[in-house]
Design a binder for these strands. Structure first.
Lengths: 205, 205
DNA sequence: TAGATTGTTAATCGATTAACAATC
DNA sequence: TAGATTGTTAATCGATTAACAATC
């Protein structure tokens, strides 16, 4: 149904979903685009515009039913579906993510973690048996893993990414500072800590 | 000198800087906006426009001198200056960042790490003595720490952020899912892992 | 009914891209 | 000089915001 939707819209809608869940816990039943916008520091028309990509959710004059809006967004975003992910590269960051309990609540199941170091392969890291990165293909295939978190050193990133694609990975959360070149079937999000920090650094200058 | 520059421009210029450094190591001496754009998957006019916020760097007909461009960008971005940072919240992520060797090379010196748990206060974590979060103010003041990385649980985020501001922190890299409300003197970058993962999840749906 | 608020269209704003004169 | 490529202005594109008819 939806045309091509701006990534920013998707991200904001996910924020709406998160906040609606919070409202629900508080016992709030109804909300207007105005109040939603105020909290998330945006405009009511932005909220309505974002939602309009996906359908009609409100009642004129009355606003939105928190539970209904939350659940329908959840459906559309596929939020309930549990996704199998793998973490590739068990350095500081990879290990931290493996140990991050929040992933479960978000519906991500860590199905495998990989590294190439002899010291790590076969050992348990944060409760996950660490696999040889050489077995990427067979394990991803066998387990039907959809998403990968890439936390390998920069020098290995492009090569590993290609192998992830070959293995059928559909999306990569890329923590390396490398601009990955893959077929555009694979969705990529980049988190570039160096650039984030340096950007702040610039503003403080 | 520079008017108000889009954050995206700053981030791209930082990418140019990183790539120019790489070119330098390779021994490449000259480059055009065209080649730079190709690598970074943008347009030559984008590169020139971005640079034009900061001055003139090239020679008509000949392009840019890699070393000169790199160094001048470095100057403007304040890239050489060493910044003192602190990490607040020694959970999985905080600990990983404390252990991340890359920070040094980026010019960030971890001057303090904080947590509120009795188990962690006073102990060494990744080589850093963990301080009581209650001492945020005095330690930040005393050491002249400018930047903070916020990796506390969501419930504590807003309150801790306010105390960071009071202590004189100028910029926060916020890993919590909370929209921080502070005076706009404090620069904030948000890294929202949940939203990043869920966004990918949506595209894979 | 009167007041409120939606969904959608139109206007505005800002960022990206193209065009081109300047010039090495 | 001819060719290349800059820096900058103008055009285009896309996203945000405002406006408003529809209607609960």
């Amino acid at each position: 149904m939806p045309r091509n939707i701006p990534r920013k819209t998707i991200q904001r809608v996910l924020l709406y979903h998160r906040y609606l869940t919070f409202l629900l816990q508080q016992g709030t039943r109804d909300i207007s685009s105005k109040s939603l916008a105020d909290i998330l520091e945006t405009k009511p028309s932005q909220v309505r515009k974002d939602l309009s990509y996906f359908g009609k959710f409100g009642t004129q004059g009355a606003g939105y039913d928190v539970l209904e809006l939350r659940d329908r967004i959840g459906m559309i975003m596929g939020i309930q579906k549990i996704r199998k992910i793998c973490i590739v590269g068990m350095g500081n960051l990879g290990e931290a993510l493996a140990g991050y309990k929040g992933l479960d609540d978000l519906g991500f199941k860590v199905s495998a973690v990989f590294d190439n170091s002899k010291q790590k392969i076969g050992r348990k890291i944060k409760g996950f048996r660490c696999h040889d990165i050489g077995k990427l293909y067979q394990i991803i295939k066998k387990d039907g893993i959809e998403l990968a978190v890439l936390t390998v050193p920069a020098a290995a990133a492009q090569e590993v990414a290609r192998r992830l694609e070959k293995a059928g990975i559909k999306a990569i959360l890329n923590f390396t500072p490398v601009k990955l070149t893959l077929s555009n079937k694979v969705k990529i999000s980049n988190v570039d800590l160096a650039v984030e920090l340096k950007t702040l650094s610039f503003f403080v200058r």
